[in-house]
């Protein structure tokens, strides 16, 4: 994830290069470090460096990293020829390298030749069955072909070994949500919360999955996680505010008539008030709709 300060720095560098201020190499390094996907810019700034032998030789060993970066960016922009040139150069320098082999597979993927890519990846995996990057490529490929169940299967197999790779857990969670397999998705989000207990996004996503599953117990838990999101974001997350209100409403519906344990009603009414305040500040024309909705849920009088 890219922090706000880093993004500002990146954007400043980008406009600086755009306006002829130099610093293209710094921009490319930063883009690589932050793993941002700005392929058009990377291609635009990187290609002139590669085409200029003097600028290229100035980079020393980094030259080859740039070739790789530009090749991937070119594939992303469907500039297959450029990507092919880069890969040919790399292959000449590093024959038999796994990393270049991966690029070759990606090139096939970019051209839409999935069977060929599959063959390339299998070849690499035969030599080194624990190559994480290749296994992830295979997942991405299954996803690109729309075969989500295969992607899930591959990811599960991958996580069987690399179970501390939290990017993979996150990917799996998102796929499960899209497949409406909420129980499994909840498990993945639990893993993510364990990994980084202070990231509100995971709390929010977990709460949402629980709310979607429904049931009294899940709703109560979901409300708690919405509450923790509110706490972790300092009340700035509108979705979490809504979440608390919705959970409270659903719980009161479910618990109706039953011996309901008296929960404090403070949280949801406070959340409703906070929502109203936010809407008054930012979208005054929608306050009426919100008021009606909240009144319907009996959260404001």
């Amino acid at each position: 994830m890219v922090g706000a300060a880093e993004e500002v720095h990146l954007n400043r560098l980008e406009s600086q290069v755009e306006n002829g201020g130099g610093g293209a190499w710094e921009y490319l390094c930063l883009a690589r470090k932050l793993k941002v996907r700005r392929s058009d810019k990377v291609l635009k700034f990187g290609l002139p460096i590669l085409n200029d032998p003097r600028a290229r030789s100035k980079l020393g060993g980094e030259e080859w990293t740039l070739y790789e970066q530009v090749a991937i960016a070119a594939m992303d922009c469907q500039q297959i020829d450029i990507a092919k040139d880069c890969i040919t150069t790399l292959l000449k320098r590093f024959p038999g390298s796994t990393r270049v082999g991966r690029l070759n597979g990606m090139l096939s993927e970019a051209k839409g030749e999935f069977a060929e890519a599959e063959r390339v990846y299998e070849q690499i995996l035969e030599k080194n069955p624990l190559d994480q990057a290749i296994q992830k490529r295979k997942v991405a490929m299954a996803k690109a072909r729309g075969d989500l169940s295969a992607a899930v299967e591959l990811l599960n197999k991958y996580l069987e070994i690399f179970m501390a790779d939290y990017d993979a857990w996150r990917e799996l969670a998102e796929i499960y949500v899209s497949q409406q397999m909420y129980k499994q998705a909840a498990f993945c989000y639990e893993e993510l919360i364990l990994f980084q207990p202070t990231v509100p996004l995971y709390h929010l996503a977990y709460a949402e999955v629980l709310y979607t599953m429904g049931g009294l117990e899940n709703l109560q838990t979901a409300k708690k996680y919405y509450a923790s999101t509110i706490d972790l974001t300092g009340g700035q997350n509108t979705r979490a505010l809504y979440g608390v209100c919705m959970c409270a409403f659903a719980i009161s519906q479910l618990a109706k008539g039953r011996s309901k344990e008296q929960e404090s009603a403070d949280l949801q009414s406070l959340a409703a008030e906070a929502l109203l305040k936010e809407y008054k500040q930012r979208a005054p024309d929608k306050v009426a709709i919100l008021t009606a909705t909240l009144r319907g849920m009996k959260l404001i009088s």
């Binding site: 838990t221 708690k224 706490d231 300092g234 009340g235 406070l270």
Partner: peptide
């Protein structure tokens, strides 16, 4: 830890409201 968070969230919201 989560039940405690409800109280904390209330405090946060009170400050906002």
């Amino acid at each position: 830890a989560l039940p405690k968070f409800e109280k904390r969230a209330e405090a946060v919201l009170r400050r906002i409201v």
